[in-house]
């Protein structure tokens, strides 16, 4: 969804730091069930951060694409059918929008907004390769770091390939707006060879990995090092503490 190009100070941060900050925002939004807190988080923390990092546009774009439709449906459905609805907020003919329902929809929507915008800060400034590397440096086993990196690398290409095949099928008469059966029939010839070739490829890849001492029992090193300044570690600790405090507040107060 994002194309993280070098530039901006957020790009140079350790991905783990950005990940912790994003997760902290999201957890705070869920632990403190008040739309005002979430809205505050968005306006006073996420938005300024994105402005500072120069990624406001892609971030807002993602929110518009993902959160806006969800919020729209939520407002209508919850507004009309919220079970605890008592105070009417709006009457439109026979329809009644309940205030309680709208408030609930608002809370959920703001949380979704936090979720998407907070992750945008991480994802719009971090190339997938760097994220996988950082996770390995932070202690993710090299085997799983490999899985993550390989999938991240292969997916864009595979999606491209799928589209090309689809286009070829269209040229041969498949109509995407055609009948359900016709479209369903178009999928199987794409799916079956894809899976068969995958099994064979996995076998060959495994040999290639063995020849590169994959899982040799030694703790692997990494070719590149991702910088991790002391400040960043402090920030990560702070994020943890903040979430912990919110959790305690939620449980006991």
């Amino acid at each position: 969804m994002f194309d993280a190009a070098p530039g901006g100070w957020l790009y140079h941060l350790n991905p783990l730091t950005k990940l912790s900050v994003s997760l902290a925002f999201i957890l705070l939004a869920f632990l403190l069930p008040s739309p005002l807190v979430s809205l505050g988080l968005f306006c006073l923390a996420i938005l300024p951060l994105s402005l500072w990092g120069g990624i406001t546009l892609p971030m807002l774009n993602a929110c518009l694409r993902l959160v806006a439709p969800a919020a729209g449906v939520l407002l209508v459905v919850q507004g009309l059918f919220y079970p605890g609805g008592q105070t009417a907020a709006l009457r439109a003919g026979p329809l009644v929008f309940w205030q309680e329902g709208l408030a609930y929809a608002g809370l959920i929507s703001v949380r979704l907004l936090i979720m998407v915008s907070a992750f945008s800060i991480l994802l719009a400034t971090t190339p997938p390769a760097k994220l996988a590397m950082a996770l390995q440096q932070a202690g993710l086993p090299a085997t799983f770091a490999y899985v993550l990196a390989a999938a991240l690398q292969l997916l864009p290409e595979a999606r491209q390939r799928a589209l090309v095949i689809l286009k070829a099928q269209r040229a041969r008469g498949l109509r995407v707006s055609g009948s359900l059966l016709a479209r369903a029939r178009a999928v199987l010839p794409l799916v079956v060879p894809m899976i068969s070739s995958t099994l064979v490829m996995a076998e060959e890849r495994a040999v290639a990995l063995e020849l590169r001492a994959f899982r040799s029992g030694v703790k692997p090193t990494t070719y590149y090092e991702i910088e991790d300044a002391g400040v960043e570690r402090t920030v990560r600790w702070l994020c943890g503490l903040l979430v912990l405090a919110a959790g305690i507040y939620r449980l006991w107060l």
């Binding site: 899985v147 990196a149 390989a150 490829m201 060959e204 290639a208």
Partner: peptide, 13 residues
């Protein structure tokens, strides 16, 4: 081996 593509580990960018 024979197939250049299949010998790439795939996990490195």
């Amino acid at each position: 081996m024979q197939n250049p593509f299949h010998q790439i580990s795939g996990g490195r960018f």
